[in-house]
Design a protein around this nucleic acid. Structure first.
Length: 514
DNA sequence: ATAGGGTTAG
């Protein structure tokens, strides 16, 4: 790093600041700025912007904002650099405030400004801001700019507004990898897997280019479809294209294979990786967890700690705790100390162990308000362990928090039915039909003799027989008759969207929990 | 000097 001299001017300052950004050297940069002030050097707009970027890079948004305020001359870039700082940290409303301030100062935003601010409008909560920005974009005719359009459609997709996203996409005068990938992954992220793949095929026919990001999204869609053959086809296509094996793509493939039912493929990819991230480990752990292989979860978790290259995050803990409970392992066996944010898992673990009262007390004593997920897992435990008192309380709690979730009605109704309270069961079902409009059609899969059989639950059916049972029955009928009943289940694998049940010798890997 | 899409969990 060069020294601060007396005769510093633009070039010298600029080089120094660049070095400070690269090294994230906050103190050094501050000294450079202080030198400017001491020598009464008024930085021109270009250098001032560099200072804003430097401060933002060091997480000193206040200093950066002050710099913008005090600059004698500002341009689009200085404003946009500051908008970008807010956006990158997810401060969407701050970013919008600054944009409004910018407009009031008669400074016209450019395409960079819009792209950067749109990235801060994420999820359903960003939709309102996103729409406001959209209208500003339309007024300035930026809508068909390829970068603006991509972030705009991505904003809608992430807010769950896939039709609006598609509308923006269809209006783009030109397309590229990013815009195509954005719309495909929009469908995939919403679980509209068939549509994602169909769109991929269509766009490829129309000549779209794809890269590793595209295939990471496509793998997400394949995970949802759980069609191993299709997954393998796409994988071999990826290998043929010799796409660089970026971690992101491999992580996605690990997940895809595990959800398509082939854990050994997942593990093979995992083992072949050189630069595993925490997501790689988590994806592999999730695989074992969903297959009910609690011991493997713990083994891999220990391996991760031994390797000591990545730090477990909250997802890791969730998975390991869930993996142990679903895999039939008791608490304490896993050697993991739950943190505060894993309280929900602890409650779930207690519930699954049949200690429903303790779970209920635990949830009531938690330092934060229980989420619908936490109540939901307790309700499930009440159903399994036939605890009508707590179940009724929790059920009504849930019907208030998320009246749109059909699952809660079904479980509560089943709980009533299992204790002979038929009238209450009926009332809850009617309530569900009244309140819940759309239900996701359920699906189950069963595979034997290397053929995958898919079952769809009818969307309008009043029948509530868990269709997994139907699948199991089908499996029993279809296996060769001369095989004795208890051995029919050898190597049978049954799954739905969330979990696998490996049935070996009449015993299920979930220990008959589901 | 300021820009877009992506992987795990719930």
């Amino acid at each position: 790093m060069g020294a601060i001299g007396l005769e510093m001017k633009f070039d010298g300052y600029y080089t120094l600041l660049n070095e400070c950004v690269n090294r994230k050297a906050f103190r050094e940069g501050q000294r450079v700025h202080a030198h400017m002030i001491r020598t009464r050097y008024l930085p021109p707009v270009h250098l001032g912007t560099r200072l804003i970027i430097f401060y933002n890079y060091c997480d000193c948004l206040g200093d950066a904002g002050r710099m913008l305020d005090e600059m004698p001359e500002r341009n689009v870039l200085s404003w946009t650099a500051m908008v970008s700082a807010y956006s990158k940290r997810g401060y969407a409303s701050e970013a919008l405030k600054l944009l409004v301030q910018m407009l009031r100062s008669d400074m016209e935003p450019n395409e960079f400004t819009f792209v950067t601010i749109l990235t801060s409008c994420t999820g359903a909560s960003g939709l309102d801001l996103g729409r406001k920005i959209h209208s500003l974009i339309i007024r300035r005719n930026f809508e068909s700019h390829i970068f603006v359009g991509s972030s705009l459609l991505d904003m809608y997709a992430k807010a769950g507004r896939i039709y609006e996203a598609r509308g923006v996409f269809d209006c783009l005068p030109e397309r590229d990898v990013v815009s195509c990938t954005a719309i495909i992954s929009g469908y995939a992220q919403l679980g509209r897997d068939e549509e994602a793949l169909e769109l991929l095929r269509q766009l490829q026919r129309e000549g779209m280019t794809s890269n590793y990001v595209t295939y990471a999204s496509v793998s997400t869609a394949l995970s949802g479809l759980a069609e191993l053959d299709l997954g393998r086809q796409v994988h071999s296509h990826i290998l043929c294209r010799e796409l660089p094996s970026y971690v992101v793509l491999l992580n996605s493939l690990i997940d895809m294979y595990s959800k398509c039912g082939n854990l050994s493929y997942s593990r093979r990819i995992f083992d072949s990786m050189t630069g595993r991230t925490i997501i790689s480990w988590n994806a592999m752990l999730v695989g074992y967890s969903k297959h009910g292989m609690g011991k493997e979860v713990v083994k891999l978790f220990k391996l991760m700690k031994e390797e000591n290259k990545v730090r477990p995050d909250s997802v890791t803990f969730l998975v390991v705790l869930f993996g142990c409970s679903h895999g039939g392992m008791k608490e304490g066996e896993n050697g993991i100390e739950p943190q505060l944010e894993h309280s929900g898992c602890v409650a779930d673990l207690l519930g699954r162990a049949g200690r429903v009262e303790e779970a209920f007390e635990f949830i009531k004593k938690m330092r934060f308000e229980a989420t619908a997920d936490i109540w939901g897992s307790l309700l499930g435990a009440c159903r399994v362990h036939s605890n009508i008192d707590i179940g009724e309380f929790v059920g009504f709690q849930l019907l208030q928090i998320e009246p749109e979730n059909a699952g809660n009605y079904v479980i509560l109704s089943n709980l009533y039915a299992s204790t002979g309270r038929w009238e209450d069961a009926r009332i809850i079902r009617e309530l569900m039909l009244e309140r819940v409009v759309i239900r996701e059609p359920g699906r189950s899969w069963i595979e034997f003799d290397q053929i995958l059989h898919t079952f769809h639950a009818s969307n309008c059916s009043q029948e509530r027989i868990p269709h997994e049972k139907l699948v199991l029955a089908f499996g029993m009928i279809a296996t060769p008759e001369r095989v004795p009943v208890t051995f029919r289940f050898v190597q049978m694998c049954m799954r739905d969207k969330n979990r696998f049940n490996h049935i070996v010798g009449g015993m299920c890997s979930c220990r008959d929990y589901w």
